[in-house]
Design a protein around this nucleic acid. Structure first.
Lengths: 147, 147
DNA sequence: TATTGTTATACTCTATAACTATA
DNA sequence: TATAGTTATAGAGTATAACAATA
């Protein structure tokens, strides 16, 4: 299959779904859902912010985020502290355990990626990651109709 | 946001979701669902096959495919003919109207992609598409655990 | 009056099991 | 007996509306 004449969205969806399938057993082993990992990854990258800011950043519904954070908090991976500046808001932050769990999962995922894309030379894998990152930034800077 | 240190699956998901969001209004205008378009696109590329083969090729549940094909058939975009070799099976094929609809939608989607990724030079867009296609092929050739 | 976190409810999408007709 | 298509049902995932506390 050439797969070269397909739309970008279709190509992204196919590659994304395959990689997500390969991630699942890793996440399962560490007792994390896909969205759990998305939250931990974002907290590791962004300064601690409010729940609403987090929901918007990862494009997840704020109502669904509640139960997710409940689980992560009960597992000791994050903390929810009241914001001194605005007592309605709660600031979410990663615990050392949360960061350790996240780092371990990421290491395994990177190894899986290298294995899954083994047919591609190392240099091309890095190029693909950079190209994807640039594309994400590019579409991000063009806030379309729904924005 | 650098977005360069993220996992491949996360990058694919983010770019894919944004592009899918941008596709929706186009598909809506042509009265097609995302999966409708996936089916039409596959039929345009692959020789007419059975329903089960189609479901497997696009990785869609065979039971959900029924209602989808019902709609496409009622709209005159595809045909379902009994396979003379195996009277249990039905061969799905694109009608001229179906191909015209598909081509029109694809043209608009390509224009949308060029617009959404306008910040990226044309050459890099083409490189991204090729890199994604090669990556899809690469993971496809490594049938993992669940396979 | 508007907003943050929360809960409860309704809706959509997806997966499982069971049926028919052919093989 | 197994398979292609089909149907009906149950389950997970998602979105919408309403509420309490604070701004």
């Amino acid at each position: 299959m050439p797969a070269d004449d397909q739309d970008l969205a279709a190509l992204c969806a196919r590659l994304g779904r395959r990689l997500a399938d390969a991630e699942r057993p890793i996440l399962d082993a560490h007792e994390l859902s896909m969205w759990d990992y998305v939250v931990l990854s974002h907290l590791a990258r962004a300064p601690a912010g409010t729940q609403l800011a987090l929901a918007r950043a990862i494009r997840y519904d704020k109502t669904r985020l509640i139960a997710l954070l409940d689980g992560l908090e009960a597992a000791g991976l994050i903390t929810r502290a009241p914001d001194p500046a605005d007592r309605r808001a709660k600031v979410v932050a990663l615990t050392p355990e949360g960061e350790a769990r996240r780092a371990g999962v990421q290491r395994e995922i990177r190894a899986m990626e290298a294995d899954a894309l083994g047919a591609l030379p190392e240099a091309e894998r890095a190029r693909l990651r950079r190209a994807l990152a640039r594309a994400v930034d590019a579409v991000g800077r063009t806030p379309r109709a729904s924005g």
